[in-house]
Amino acid sequence: MTGDGRGFTLNGKPASLRAPDNAVLVDVLREDHGLHGCRIGCDQAVCGACTVLVDGTPMAACSTFAFEVEGRSVLTIEGVANASDGAPDPIQRAFLEERGFQCGYCTAGMILTTRALLERDPDPTEATIRAWLGAGVCRCTGYSAIISAVHTAARLLRQGSV
């Protein structure tokens, strides 16, 4: 077990990291922190449903040891909306506007991937978007609506929408 002194930042707040050394991040997030928005799909870093941002970088929580995030900042889908009033952020609004989801199982991963992409490239080309979204599987939408949502999110963010 990691000691009580170890911790990480979870959705902007300090959190303790009490997990066996072989625990993976997705189980810690779901079981210890109740963050079920981090989905388990393939459980082998293929489908992207468990994607979280670790210091802003997309990582598959199913294939990341919990101890790897010690001292780092983890953002899950539950930390994306406005903390005080729950209002969706511009990327979430774009996904709603463009219906960038059907069953919703991949959606958290897609939104967090989009966030990382737009932080690096505020005005991505279609090819860049396809390449980034290629880190995850959506079996429902055929991707068109998700790609539209990324374009819309980029526009909302460039317009300084909050």
């Binding site: 079920h36 928005g37 889908i77 709603l96």
Partner: peptide, 18 residues
């Protein structure tokens, strides 16, 4: 958040989460 919003907010619960 309403039902639609929950998919983008992570709040939707599936049988997997039951």
């Amino acid at each position: 958040m309403d039902g639609l919003n929950d998919k983008v907010g992570g709040g939707t619960r599936y049988a997997f989460d039951a």
